[in-house]
């Protein structure tokens, strides 16, 4: 049996009195692609942010590469990690955001080089060479010296993917990566993601692109109201859903 890259057991999350996640159980196998779908407010994005501890898990356990996220377990108690320790553990996962969140005061190349140099402490010259390879890979080899604002949304998102990859993560998290894009720019970002999946990267993708999910995902997870309603291979969840809520959602989206 393969070991899981992400394993969630009864993960809960509250914002004040509102319960966003009501016990999520989920396994993401190494080298697989999981797409999280569901209506807005269903907790998909919150769960994704929990995976690299941008949100604190309130109850349950979440493992990334067999390490507990955000806590250390000792003598039957969970101790919250120090900020620096949490920051270290986040290095396992690269994250891509809906609104790109590139650093606007840096050029494209500086955006990619920033974390490997200033977080990992690697030599700049070496990282710049790798960054150029990554830029070529996302098809923007000649834009290294542009500022993010000079690029289209699709280009910015591809840079954001390159920036995350520069940290050599074991896992990539995508939070609605194409939702803020003009329709004609969606394809170029999905293409980069597809090639990443083909190269064997473990990916968790929150998306509304059901076509992408059908084509690329190994597992589709339908969430609603803070729970996983159903999950399975795309042809099953998207093709012949068993639950009424899934059917209702799919009929609205398609």
């Amino acid at each position: 049996m393969t070991t899981a890259m992400v394993e969630a057991r009864g993960v809960r999350k509250n914002f004040g009195v509102i319960e966003i996640l009501k016990g999520i159980d989920l396994r993401v196998e190494k080298g697989s692609v999981t797409c999280l779908i569901g209506p807005s407010g269903s907790g998909k994005t919150t769960f994704l942010r929990c995976i690299n501890h941008l949100e604190k898990v309130d109850a349950g356990r979440l493992y990334v590469d067999e390490h507990l996220v955000g806590y250390t377990e000792r003598n039957g108690k969970l101790y919250e990690m120090k900020e620096r320790q949490t920051a270290r553990s986040r290095l396992n996962a690269g994250m891509v955001f809906q609104r790109f969140n590139l650093f606007p005061h840096m050029t494209v190349l500086e955006n990619i080089v920033e974390a490997p140099v200033h977080v990992l402490g690697r030599p700049r010259r070496e990282v710049v060479v790798e960054a150029q390879v990554l830029l070529d890979r996302v098809g923007l080899g000649n834009r290294g010296h542009s500022y993010p604002q000079e690029l289209s949304g699709g280009q910015q998102q591809r840079i954001a993917i390159a920036r995350a990859l520069a940290m050599k993560p074991k896992l990539m998290l995508f939070d609605e990566p194409t939702s803020a894009l003009d329709p004609e720019l969606v394809g170029e970002v999905l293409d980069v993601m597809k090639s990443l999946a083909e190269a064997g990267m473990t990916m968790v993708v929150v998306t509304h692109e059901l076509g992408f999910a059908r084509q690329v995902a190994d597992q589709v997870v339908f969430m609603d109201g803070g729970v996983v309603v159903e999950s399975g291979p795309p042809e099953q969840v998207l093709g012949s859903p068993r639950h009424e809520r899934t059917k209702a959602f799919l009929s609205k989206v398609l």
Binding site: L91, N101, L102, H118
Partner: peptide, 17 residues
């Protein structure tokens, strides 16, 4: 923008850096 904190944290930065 708050997203800048998210992006920096996701890249392993914290605190002073």
């Amino acid at each position: 923008d708050k997203g800048q904190y998210d992006a920096a944290r996701a890249l392993g930065m914290s605190g002073g850096k």
